[in-house]
Design a protein around this nucleic acid. Structure first.
Length: 313
DNA sequence: GGCCCTCTTTAGGGCCTT
């Protein structure tokens, strides 16, 4: 089974294949408990999942190994295809080529940069759950995006924020976070370059997205890969100044979108829309502050570095 | 909850994320 078929929405197929095809890799990156967790996930009742990955991967060195698949469970799924327009893709790529523009020197990619966003049932990482996850690989191209709704197994009471309702989540084809983990790991590995880390980018990620993600992994008794690094665009945006040299009064994603005149093409507070906005903001932000990708890496942190994840608050 | 700012640091208010 190729990654391309998975990326057309057959997430349940991938979930069922994880246990058959990825054991060595999982053991390489994780502890034995993770392996056992993934096997236990696979033993769960087979359910069709509705998730979306956009386009196909052609990345050299992509870690995909689905050819020896067995025991396929063909079930109905929902999927949608979104194509990122070429001019926008080229604009996003300029983040990586910033140094090249001014130095004329071809630089190597120091990391896979994944811009991500989550929607949740609220602000409490202890009480609330992730209900939507979206990510875009800044490299663009095929397989560059991944998004899914997630069944939080609890009531959603902030539908007025994101428009995601209980009826959208409490369906057999919407995965729980535990179902999603092996799928997400496999997706990230398919994008990761050999020997290089993954740099996750989120706005206010240090205080919100990263701890949320960390605790969802912990609830499922799965460790985050050690080569996942995170960078928060919020403190970076706080370095911006206005025309009079004063710091900005607000550096919310919405205010940054307005500052850079980025059009809103969908619903704000939906994960993929905010990811798309943040991709543009990141490009503008790094250009304005003359930040290179290696400098972004210097600002990165691991989830386990955060006080919140150490104290379990 | 974490971070930043200031009328501060032995504190408090506001921003940012859903």
């Amino acid at each position: 089974m190729s990654l391309s078929s998975i990326c057309c929405g057959n997430f349940h197929l991938l979930r069922n294949l994880i246990g058959n095809t990825c054991n060595i890799r999982l053991l390489k990156y994780h502890s034995r408990s993770i392996f056992e967790t993934l096997l236990s996930i696979r033993r769960h009742q087979s359910r069709p999942l509705s998730t979306t990955v956009l386009a196909r991967s052609t990345r050299k060195g992509s870690k995909q190994s689905f050819s020896n698949s067995r025991h396929l469970h063909v079930e109905s799924v929902e999927s949608s295809i979104e194509v990122f327009k070429q001019p926008e893709l080229e604009q996003l790529k300029s983040l990586h080529t910033y140094k090249e523009k001014f130095s004329g020197v071809k630089t190597e990619w120091p990391a896979t940069i994944l811009v991500f966003d989550i929607e949740t049932t609220g602000f409490s990482r202890r009480e609330d759950r992730i209900i939507e996850f979206a990510v875009r690989d800044l490299m663009g191209g095929k397989n560059s995006t991944f998004q899914t709704l997630i069944n939080p197994e609890k009531d959603v009471r902030n539908t007025y924020i994101h428009g995601i309702s209980n009826s959208m989540l409490c369906r057999p084809d919407v995965p729980r976070f535990g179902d999603l983990i092996p799928i997400l790991l496999q997706y990230v590995w398919s994008r990761q370059m050999d020997g290089k880390p993954v740099l996750w980018v989120a706005h206010n990620g240090r205080s919100f997205d990263v701890p949320f993600l960390f605790f969802e992994f912990r609830r499922c008794k799965v460790e985050m890969p050690g080569d996942w690094l995170f960078v928060d665009t919020l403190p970076i945006a706080r370095q911006l100044v206005d025309s009079e040299g004063s710091k900005l009064s607000s550096v919310s994603l919405e205010k940054l979108r307005e500052r850079y005149k980025i059009p809103l093409t969908g619903s704000a507070h939906r994960a993929m829309q905010d990811v798309t906005t943040l991709c543009y903001v990141l490009q503008k932000l790094t250009f304005e502050l003359k930040l290179t990708v290696p400098q972004l890496l210097e600002k990165s942190f691991r989830a386990t570095d955060l006080p919140a994840t150490r104290s379990d608050k």
